[in-house]
Design a protein around this nucleic acid. Structure first.
Length: 568
RNA sequence: CGGUGAGUGGCGCAGCUUGGUAGCGCACUUGGUUUGGGUCCAAGGGGUCGUAGGUUCGAAUCCUAUCUCACCGACCA
């Protein structure tokens, strides 16, 4: 490709709306343009990257035994009513009507369509298991599209669906997909982690998310420094390895005027927040017969409401108690609550339960207790895992300690069970002639999001540094003053022809631009290899090679350039 | 959905308080100059100021409505 015949579309200035680096660079490097909120046009360079990602995904899917199909973006509402998601899904589901006033949706995902298809096409156990996939445009009417294609409304996703009679078969396919996903991210060359994910409302289901590690990620990932353990912080179990020391202090009430936060109490008493304990009051589940439930956490820890909701005493959705109610019931404000003598069920986090001689509110404004001890001063309580893990916690699998990094979710695999097949009556006849509802798995990869994630992980102040596997071009030819020098033009044209002959994807910058402009554009776009042709080096029959990823520069004999690049 | 802010050539912005029918930088066109890191000089083209209505002799500027976009918010004793 010659730049003079190409839509390079690079920009010097960053549009004001771009917040994260990948969004800025995608705009500046001419990869995408915004059409409307959450809707993007893919320009030539961007599309090249996108197609490469998709090609790798397809290849790994095919290798893992999945078969490609393609389903419509527009789907009839009936299917969604059948599965129950017409009501469940909420405003993210874009609903439209056709000219006959029939309801349709723009597919945010394709479980309904595929289940309906398999129901009609597959009738015998002999045809199973089956794993089909597509690379398709999805539409989710996001509340708040942001970060460019990272969270857009229209996006491209690879989604696969598998169908099974036996759980073991589902488990097998699930493992195969897990491996295929690892292969995909390995091949693209991204630092990633498969992460244990929320099984959600569908009970007992197994689920993993695949995260690309990047500081701009929207999720916190906890992972062990010594094992494969990795989990979303929302899910990661907080285990407490400390045992509670014996009580050494007497329960003492102290005055703490105006100290309403743990930080203030700790400072006033000149203590570590670790031995201060905070007590939160939350709404109780209606059937518990209580109004409020107390949750006790160590001062330096944060409540994890996803874990809290799982406790039968706690109301769903999770709600903090109203301060007025609490003040009425306990006679003190939020800042002075403590478990001592508290008349409500008390749930204590494991780490808080390991504290001895600790500080807590005295259930009286401006008063706290010091030297508090479990069993002795508070007898009725339950110990539960209620907090977010923090860096340095012991890994739940017993190996190593946890670290926390930000991650971008780029894949999600799921053992669905029979939620859709049951609702839609998708089953086959078994060997014994009985009709049986199928088990399903579903497996998604955000193809467009991978492009953004790859940039988040690979960039510098000059621009993008594409991993070779998904670079829009492999090599750039940058001739200095070609339009004034015959031998430079000849060399450039010869090299260009050679690369094309060898099927090397080459971008030949034949614009009548100053060298700096060309250098900057090629670096911004992030082409892995550059060949700079200039008079000086040509005198020695050499050109300069530059590696975008490493910054390394070397002189190469012209005759060896082709071999040098193809050997990379 | 709530809060905040913004809509002025393709992009980034100024002008608005103190109404007098638009300006700067980048980009673009032409000529010259320069040529290993976004040259310099000159001459140009392009916007009616998100939209609708109102006030006024006169509105980008004041008022009302509306649309769009961005950022923040679901973090706590």
């Amino acid at each position: 490709m010659r730049t003079s015949e190409y839509l390079l579309a690079t920009q010097k200035e960053t549009p004001a709306e771009a917040e994260v680096i990948s969004h800025q660079l995608m705009l500046r490097a001419g990869l995408v343009r915004k059409l409307a909120s959450g809707l993007y046009t893919w320009l030539p360079s961007g599309l090249r990257v996108l197609n490469k990602v998709a090609a790798i995904v397809r290849d790994e899917m095919n290798k893992a035994g999945a078969i490609e199909i393609s389903m419509p973006v527009v789907q009839p509402a009936d299917l969604w009513q059948e599965s129950g998601r017409w009501e469940e899904y909420g405003p993210e589901l874009l609903r439209i009507k056709d000219r006959h006033q029939r309801d349709f949706v723009l597919g945010p995902t394709h479980e309904e369509v595929i289940t309906s298809l398999i129901k009609n096409e597959v009738s015998s156990y002999k045809q199973l298991p089956l794993n089909v996939y597509q690379v398709q445009t999805k539409f989710r009417d996001e509340v708040r599209p942001r970060f460019g294609v990272m969270r857009s409304r229209e996006f491209i996703m690879k989604d696969a669906y598998s169908f099974h009679i036996e759980d073991e078969s589902l488990e097998q396919t699930y493992q195969r997909m897990h491996q295929a996903y690892c292969n995909v991210f390995e091949r693209i060359g991204l630092e990633y982690r498969p992460v244990i994910a929320d099984s959600g409302s569908i009970g007992g289901a197994v689920s993993h998310e695949f995260h690309v590690l990047a500081d701009s990620g929207e999720d916190d990932i906890a992972f062990s420094d010594q094992s494969d353990y990795a989990a979303n912080v929302e899910l990661a179990e907080a285990i407490c390895t400390e045992t509670r020391p014996d009580a050494t202090q007497a329960l003492t009430q102290v005055s703490t005027p105006g100290a309403k936060t743990i930080a203030a109490v700790a400072e006033m008493l000149d203590l570590d927040t670790k031995i201060c304990v905070k007590t939160l009051v939350v709404a109780a589940d209606e059937e518990s017969g209580h109004k409020h439930i107390a949750i006790v956490l160590r001062g330096d820890h944060q409540l994890n409401d996803i874990k809290a909701i799982k406790h039968p005493l706690i109301a769903t959705p999770f709600t903090m108690a109203d301060e007025k109610d609490v003040t009425e019931a306990l006679g003190c404000g939020f800042g002075s609550i403590g478990p001592v003598g508290l008349d409500m069920p008390i749930l204590v986090d494991r780490s808080a339960a390991a504290c001895a001689d600790f500080v807590c509110g005295a259930n009286e404004d401006d008063m706290h207790y010091t030297g508090v001890n479990w069993e002795r001063d508070v007898t009725d309580f339950e110990v539960v895992d209620l907090r977010d893990v923090v860096a340095g916690d012991a890994s739940p699998d017993g190996k190593g300690t946890l670290q926390i990094r930000k991650g971008i979710e780029v894949g999600h695999i799921f053992q669905l069970g029979d939620k859709y097949s049951k609702a839609m009556g998708c089953g086959v006849l078994t060997e014994s002639g009985k009709h049986q509802i199928l088990k399903m798995g579903c497996y998604g990869i955000g193809v467009t999001r991978i492009v953004a994630a790859a940039i988040e992980q690979n960039h510098d102040k000059f621009g993008i540094k594409w991993p070779m596997a998904i670079a829009p071009f492999e090599v750039a030819i940058i001739p200095m003053n070609m339009h004034k020098s015959h031998r430079i033009m000849e060399t450039a044209l010869k090299l260009y022809a050679d690369f094309i002959a060898e099927s090397v994807e080459v971008l030949f910058d034949d614009r009548k631009e100053r060298p700096g402009v060309m250098f900057n554009d090629m670096e911004l776009i992030g082409i892995p290899h550059s060949i700079v042709i200039g008079e000086r080096n040509l005198d020695n029959n050499q050109v300069e090679y530059k590696n975008r990823m490493t910054g390394e520069k070397t002189l190469i004999n012209i005759d060896e350039v082709l071999a040098f690049i193809t050997n990379q």
